[in-house]
């Protein structure tokens, strides 16, 4: 009897899931090891993180505030991955969404019930417009959307910074580098958790339904797994690609709207807080499944909330970013390894 390593064409779902769980655990273990080497007790820190997050309603409310933007950016990246497009510009679209919403709130007079929908529409539209050029370049000239979407993040961050410290600077002179407080706020549903969270959860469910039961969702999935045969089968692959990428941008933009109108209340530089980049990990861990995004965004929110506790230990939120990268690296490796299985070969051959 001999053993042979065999590579399967696609990884069985349970193995892919196990690989993801393992990658998270392994990344946590490596981070703990590095902290221990730096003289920080990781067990003690983990206990602090968990009690600070789940030990009080304040902790849970904070968690809710982090959960919502991660859902939006995670969904944005996941939707793109459905058709094989890497939107790593969610960070930028998030900023532009916040910018557009703040613009409406600050400069358009009107009652709240009219302004809020207008802000949401403007933010979604802004996010979609921000990804328009990379989308058209990918669809018509086959230019990889990876670099174009990413570079626009820097432009968006600079634009928000410029607007918040320049032309839209708080005229009262009390705030240093932000706009005035927005006159319109997203109402709260629980404690300080605003409507952004239920809206995001609802969107995840709606997207899950769209991708699993509609013809459009099916065609998008086909176009993503094999564009050539999808085209041969008569599916409008290019049109789907454009629609999906614009939807992805709009989702990230919506995240920005909720952040500026619900959580922060004014437009300031760095409002995106790396949510766009963390969304990549959220989407990858969820294997681009909208309902999976709920689980992975929650996990990411716990880790991110832990980052706030870590700051008391001299670590920064950047430590969380590094840990996210580790999870992603292990997930990439685990994904590939999940394709293999050991096969027993009976007798000689």
């Amino acid at each position: 009897m001999r053993l042979k390593l065999q590579r399967l064409h696609s990884a069985p779902p349970w193995k892919a899931f196990a690989a993801r769980v393992l990658s998270v655990l392994l990344a946590l273990a490596v981070t703990a090891l590095m902290m221990a080497m730096a003289g920080i007790d990781p067990i003690d820190l983990a206990a602090q993180v968990l009690s600070a997050t789940f030990g009080s309603s304040f902790g849970l409310e904070d968690l809710g505030l982090l959960f919502s933007p991660l859902l939006f950016t995670g969904l944005a990246v996941a939707v793109g991955l459905r058709i094989g497009a890497w939107n790593i510009g969610a960070e930028g679209q998030f900023n532009i969404g916040a910018l557009c919403a703040a613009g409406i709130a600050l400069f358009v007079p009107g009652p709240d019930w009219a302004l809020l929908p207008a802000m949401i529409a403007a933010g979604a539209l802004g996010g979609a417009l921000w990804i328009l050029v990379p989308t058209l370049a990918r669809a018509y000239a086959d230019v990889s959307e990876l670099i174009t979407t990413l570079l626009l993040n820097f432009v968006a961050l600079l634009l928000v910074y410029y607007v918040a410290t320049g032309p839209w600077l708080d005229p009262s002179g009390r705030a240093l580098a932000t706009t005035a407080r927005l006159p319109v706020r997203l109402p709260e549903v629980w404690g300080i958790v605003h409507w952004g969270l239920p809206i995001a959860l609802g969107l995840a469910v709606v997207l899950a339904v769209i991708f699993s039961v509609t013809r459009w969702g099916y065609e998008v999935r086909m176009a993503g797994s094999n564009a050539g045969s999808a085209r041969y089968a008569g599916m409008p692959v290019r049109r789907h690609l454009i629609a999906v990428m614009l939807l992805s941008g709009a989702l990230a933009g919506l995240g920005g709207v909720m952040e500026v109108a619900g959580t922060v209340g004014r437009l300031q530089g760095g409002i995106s807080n790396n949510y766009g980049y963390l969304g990549i990990m959220v989407a990858v861990l969820a294997r681009a499944a909208p309902l999976g995004v709920i689980a992975s965004a929650f996990l990411m929110a716990v880790i991110l909330n832990g980052g706030i506790v870590m700051q008391t230990q001299g670590l920064t939120t950047n430590t969380v970013l590094a840990m996210t990268g580790l999870i992603l690296l292990f997930a990439a490796i685990g994904d590939e390894l999940a394709h293999y299985r050991l096969r027993r070969l009976e007798g000689r051959n």
């Binding site: 790593i88 580790l326 992603l328 690296l329 990439a332 590939e336």
Partner: peptide, 23 residues
Amino acid sequence: IIRANQVLSGLALTLIGTGMAAT
């Protein structure tokens, strides 16, 4: 060697490097 997805591994490396360097 493992032949993991290059895009994913590269993005991971960017996050790890940026985060660790800042820490």
